[in-house]
Design a protein around this nucleic acid. Structure first.
Length: 426
RNA sequence: GGAGAGAUGGCCGAGUGGUCGAAGGCGCCUGACUCGAAAUCAGGUUUGCGGGUAACCGCAACGGGGGUUCGAAUCCCUCUCUCUCCGCCA
C-alpha cells in the first residue's frame, strides 16, 4: 500500500511516478481529496469526543460527591448526537480512501525503464553459451512424450487442460531439482528453509497485494474461506505479518518449496502446449525481509542466488529489468531471469526477482524497531523464484537434448538421481 | 463434531464499571558507584492517527467486530485463535 502521507505531501511526484505504471492521475487526486475530507471530519469528531470525555469524568466526580449530574448528562446527550452524525461521515470517507489505496499500485523505482509493455524491458546481462544443434531441436513436450516422462493426455482426462502427469525420470527430475535448489539456497546462500501452508486466508493475500485486485487469478476453495496459493511468496511473506522484528535480525532470508496454483484467466490460447503455463506447478521461492536502507543491495544478492542455480545447471540465460508497464502491481523494481529455449529460439521467464520496498510491509504491518532512533519502521520485502521447477525441467530437456531424442542429465543433479546420466526412451 | 478454559504492553503477569494507558517482575535505555565490568541504587521505557515549527495537545487501542452505559480491560453478543477432555481420523 502506498503511504497516504506521500500523496498528502508529494502528490505531484506520486502522480508522475504512477503515470509510468499507467495509473490515471484522477485516482491520486481522488485519494488526496478523500484524505482531506476525512481529516477535517475526524478533527471535528475528536474535538467533540474530548469534550464528552471531560464531561464524563465530571459525572464520576459528582456521583462520588453525591451531587446531581442531570445538567451534565443533558449536555452529553447533545454532544453524542453530533458525534454520531459526523462520525458516520468520517468513517465513510475513511473506508472509501482505504479501498482506493488498496488498488493503487506501488511506485516504480527511479531506475526502472519507462515504457508501456515488455518491449521496453532492459537487458542487463547474458550468461552462457547458446547451444547449437546439428539437427532440429525438439520442444520439451515432444521430447517428454517420446521419453515417456510426460503424459498430457491422461492429465487432461483427470483434470483438464493445463495439467501434466510426470512419470519415471520426469517425476524424479522434478524431485531432484527441488532438493538441489533448496540445498544450494540453504547451504551456500544462508536461507532458512520453510514449508508453509498451501491454503491461505484472504488477509494473507491482501498483505502481498494479490487481493483485492487480482481475485480472478486465484483459485478459491469452494464454500470455504481459503485460497490456493499462487506462489510461496504469499504464506512466507505473511510469516511476519503484524510483527515487530529486531533490527539485528535483518535481513531474514527464507527459502520455500511449494506447489503454486494459478487460474490463468485471460491467458487463453497462450502457451497451450507443454509445461510452460500450468494451473499447478512447483516453485522454490526466495523471500527476504530487509532493512529499508539496504534492500536494493539485497535484491542484487537475491537475484544472484537465483542466477547461480541456472549457472550450476549450465543453462544459458539473460537478466532483464522489467519496464514500468510490464512489472507487477506490488513491485518497485523487478528483474526477470529468462532461460534459453532452443525449440522457440528465445528466452523465457524462469524467475522473477522483486523489491517491494515497504508496499507489502505496510499492508501486512511488518515492522522493525531500530536500535537507535526509537521509531518503528516498515521493513522492505523481496522475493524471487529460485527457480520455477517445471520451467527448469523444460529448459533442461530442450538444452540437453541429443539427436536420438535422449537427454543428458546436468552433472549437479546426478547425485540426486542415483547417479543416472542420461534420460533415454524405453 | 460435542463439553469446558483462556487471549492484557518487547516478554511474564495483576487487574470484575470512573482516580487504569494499565500494578509488579523481566528485558532495555540513562545516570550514580567502579580503573573497567558485574552487583546495587535512582530515573526512564507502548503503539497508531490527527493538530502544531516545537514544547506539546487531542483521539483511539487490553485477540477482531458489534452492543449496554454519561463512562468498559472489566458487563452482554459474535468471530478468530490457543489449551484441556470426549468422539472421529491419516
Amino acid at each position: 500500500m502506498i503511504d497516504i502521507q506521500r500523496i498528502r505531501n508529494n502528490k505531484d511526484e506520486v502522480i508522475e511516478l504512477l503515470s509510468r505504471k499507467n495509473v490515471p492521475s484522477e485516482i491520486i487526486e481522488k485519494a488526496f481529496a478523500l484524505d482531506e475530507d476525512w481529516r477535517s471530519k475526524t478533527t471535528e469528531v475528536e474535538q467533540l469526543k474530548a469534550r464528552k470525555n471531560a464531561l464524563s469524568k465530571e459525572i464520576g466526580k459528582l456521583k462520588r460527591e453525591n451531587k446531581d449530574a442531570s445538567e451534565v448528562l443533558a449536555e452529553i446527550e447533545k454532544i453524542s448526537h453530533s458525534i454520531e452524525e459526523i462520525e458516520v461521515l468520517a468513517q465513510e470517507k475513511e473506508a472509501e480512501l482505504k479501498n482506493l489505496l488498496l488498488i493503487i499500485p506501488n511506485t516504480p523505482n527511479i531506475d526502472v525503464p519507462v515504457g508501456k509493455d515488455e518491449t521496453y524491458n532492459r537487458e542487463e546481462k547474458k550468461w552462457g553459451e547458446i547451444p547449437s544443434f546439428d539437427f532440429e531441436p525438439k520442444s520439451h513436450d515432444e521430447l517428454g512424450e517420446q521419453l515417456g516422462i510426460f503424459d498430457f493426455q491422461r492429465a487432461a482426462k483427470i483434470s483438464g487442460a493445463r495439467f501434466v502427469v510426470c512419470k519415471k525420470m520426469g517425476a524424479a527430475l522434478e524431485r531432484a531439482l527441488i532438493n538441489f535448489m533448496i540445498d544450494v539456497h540453504t547451504k551456500e546462500n544462508g536461507y532458512i528453509e520453510v514449508l508453509p501452508p498451501y491454503l491461505v486466508k484472504a488477509a494473507a493475500l491482501y498483505g502481498t497485494g494479490n487481493l483485492p485486485k487480482f481475485e480472478a487469478d486465484l483459485f478459491k476453495v469452494d464454500g470455504g474461506e481459503f485460497y490456493l496459493i499462487p506462489t510461496a511468496e504469499v504464506p512466507v511473506t505473511n510469516l511476519h505479518r503484524d510483527e515487530i522484528l529486531s533490527e539485528e535480525d535483518l535481513p531474514i532470508s527464507y527459502c520455500a518449496f511449494t506447489p503454486c496454483f494459478r487460474s490463468e484467466a485471460g491467458s487463453y490460447g497462450k502457451d497451450t502446449k507443454g509445461m510452460i503455463r500450468q494451473h499447478q506447478f512447483h516453485k522454490v521461492e526466495l523471500v527476504k525481509f530487509a532493512h529499508p536502507d539496504n534492500s536494493y543491495n539485497e535484491l542484487e544478492k537475491l537475484t544472484r542466488d537465483a542466477e547461480r542455480i541456472l549457472e550450476y545447471l549450465n543453462l544459458p540465460y539473460r537478466r532483464v529489468t522489467l519496464s514500468t508497464g510490464d512489472m507487477s502491481f506490488s513491485s518497485a523494481k523487478t528483474y526477470d531471469l529468462e532461460v534459453w529455449l532452443p525449440s522457440q529460439s528465445l528466452y523465457r521467464e524462469i524467475s522473477s526477482c522483486s523489491n517491494f520496498e515497504d508496499f507489502q510491509a505496510r499492508r501486512a504491518q511488518i515492522r522493525f524497531k531500530p536500535k537507535v532512533g526509537g521509531k518503528t519502521r516498515f521493513v522492505h520485502t523481496l522475493n524471487g523464484s529460485g527457480l520455477a521447477v517445471g520451467r527448469t525441467v523444460v529448459a533442461i530437456l530442450e538444452n540437453y537434448q541429443r539427436k536420438d531424442g535422449s537427454v543428458v542429465i546436468p552433472e549437479v543433479l546426478r547425485k540426486y538421481l542415483n547417479g543416472a546420466e542420461i534420460i533415454e526412451p524405453n
